[in-house]
């Protein structure tokens, strides 16, 4: 299956319409979920009144931050094992998007935390620490790629770092979990079903889906730009050698 997706021509033909479609559908769903969150759902005094409406951006961005690191590790592994160039392009494209979503998760979390917990930032909260460490992993990945001389070296070094980071993430998560935490427990993904009333849950899940689709569209757009960039390099090289 990976082979079928690894063909750049097929990817370009597919993403030509799929990328804008994802961006459009994702944006529409995102607008709906934010509209629901800001104006329709009743406020929840237990979570700090109106400020809990930040959830409809905060929670999807947290999901996407985690998913993008997993995506970075998976595409890096695929590239490292099979050397499919598209996997490397995907990893390169995911990194800045993942960093942006991680930053968004931290920012909205701080804005939510200030009125409810009375503080912008808590060092002894496990989840905040994990996300912060992940943010630095993304930054390190991008800095390493940027520092490498050639595209091939950037791909290899990035893949090694992403995989080393990925095996460390569970350990980091476990070690910061040892600390006491005031962050509320998971309330959507639980074995005994979600602990959230459906009036909140539906817009939240649609919001998560929206960000996921939007993220896929953005990744494909960046990958398309990368393919075009490489084609441009080839054209320049041909022209220089021909003249």
């Amino acid at each position: 299956m990976i082979r079928a997706f690894a063909n750049p021509h097929r990817f370009m033909a597919l993403s030509r319409w799929l990328a804008p479609a994802c961006l459009g559908v994702g944006a529409l769903l995102m607008v709906w979920s934010v509209w629901q969150g800001l104006w329709v759902v009743p406020q929840d005094d237990y979570q700090g009144g109106d400020i809990m409406r930040a959830m409809f951006v905060h929670v999807p961005s947290a999901w996407l931050a985690m998913a993008s690191y997993m995506g970075l590790a998976a595409t890096s592994l695929i590239w490292f094992v099979w050397r499919h160039e598209l996997a490397d392009m995907a990893a390169k494209s995911i990194a800045p998007l993942g960093a942006a979503y991680t930053a968004m998760c931290l920012a909205t979390g701080s804005i939510w935390g200030k009125p409810t917990w009375g503080t912008w930032w808590l060092w002894d909260d496990a989840r905040m620490m994990s996300v912060l460490v992940m943010f630095f992993l993304f930054l390190g990945y991008m800095a390493l790629r940027a520092a490498m001389e050639t595209r091939q070296k950037a791909a290899r070094a990035g893949a090694i770092l992403a995989m080393v980071g990925a095996v460390n993430v569970p350990l980091i998560k476990f070690s910061v979990d040892i600390w006491s935490s005031i962050h509320q427990d998971a309330s959507v993904l639980r074995l005994d079903g979600p602990a959230m009333p459906p009036v909140y849950l539906t817009p939240l899940l649609i919001g998560g889906l929206a960000h996921m689709i939007f993220f896929a569209g953005l990744t494909m757009m960046l990958m398309r730009a990368e393919v075009w960039g490489r084609r441009g390099d080839v054209l320049i090289a041909r022209k220089l050698s021909g003249s």
Partner: peptide
Amino acid sequence: ALAASVARGGLLISLLALPLFVP
């Protein structure tokens, strides 16, 4: 080792290694 071929890679090494120091 990752930054071995990078000139003046000292700061890059810190950025790469410090998150792994957390546990």
